[in-house]
């Protein structure tokens, strides 16, 4: 009887390494999801080199750069939140998580103004101004809206996730011994950052 009991407790026994493995595998699917779009981008960029250059001039490099800095910094605060919780500094961890959410929010605000400016200039899918442009430019903006849009969606999801983690940290569900959930949110957040690292030069810096 005691032998069985021991085995059952072993089953309940948690496996953080296994959980991390699961998260990484999930991140691969996200990576390939965006990878598919990068394939589309690569082919059209190859086909319409000149028109992509012209179209990219419409994008605001300053906002793009600012958003890059914001995301990189938010990645830092995210990883620091994990260091803090591991050092059992609950307050500091929550502080860093809140900063991360705040930075993500800043990213979205910038994105909003950037998109609104485009739409204001009449550049949006199906608009007359856009359809009057060359095929390459139509494709560029199609990809721009879809790729930054999907990336933005991931930022929003990330904000919600980190928000939940902040709550967990406050309640003590995430603590210095068991912080796998926070780590998972962190891994997700860094992947969102990596995708932006590629989106940024490919859309904003090809003028």
């Amino acid at each position: 009887m005691s032998v069985v009991a021991e085995h059952i407790s072993e089953h309940v026994h948690r496996d953080d390494l296994g959980s991390r493995m699961g998260i990484w595998l999930f991140l691969f699917t996200e990576l390939v999801l965006f990878g598919g779009m990068f394939l589309v981008y690569a082919v059209y960029r190859f086909t319409y080199q000149q028109e992509f250059h012209v179209a990219a001039k419409e994008l605001n490099t300053l906002i793009g750069t600012l958003n890059t800095l914001i995301l990189l910094t938010s990645s830092l605060t995210m990883v620091l939140a994990i260091v803090a919780i591991r050092k059992d500094n609950k307050f500091l961890s929550i502080f860093f998580q809140v900063i991360t959410i705040f930075l993500a929010f800043g990213f979205m605000v910038n994105k909003y103004f950037e998109w609104m400016a485009k739409i204001h200039h009449g550049i949006y899918p199906g608009s007359e101004t856009l359809l009057a442009k060359g095929n390459g430019e139509i494709l560029f903006f199609g990809l721009y809206y879809v790729m930054t849009g999907l990336h933005g969606l991931h930022v929003l999801i990330g904000m919600v996730l980190i928000g939940v983690m902040t709550r967990f940290t406050m309640k003590g569900t995430v603590n210095s011994d068991k912080y796998i959930h926070l780590e998972a949110a962190g891994l997700y957040w860094h992947l969102v950052d990596i995708i932006w690292i590629f989106l940024f030069p490919l859309f904003y810096l090809i003028t």
Partner: peptide, 13 residues
């Protein structure tokens, strides 16, 4: 949304 991505009428492949 009529975004140009694959539609040959919009340059897509």
């Amino acid at each position: 949304f009529g975004v140009g991505l694959f539609d040959p009428a919009l340059g897509g492949d």
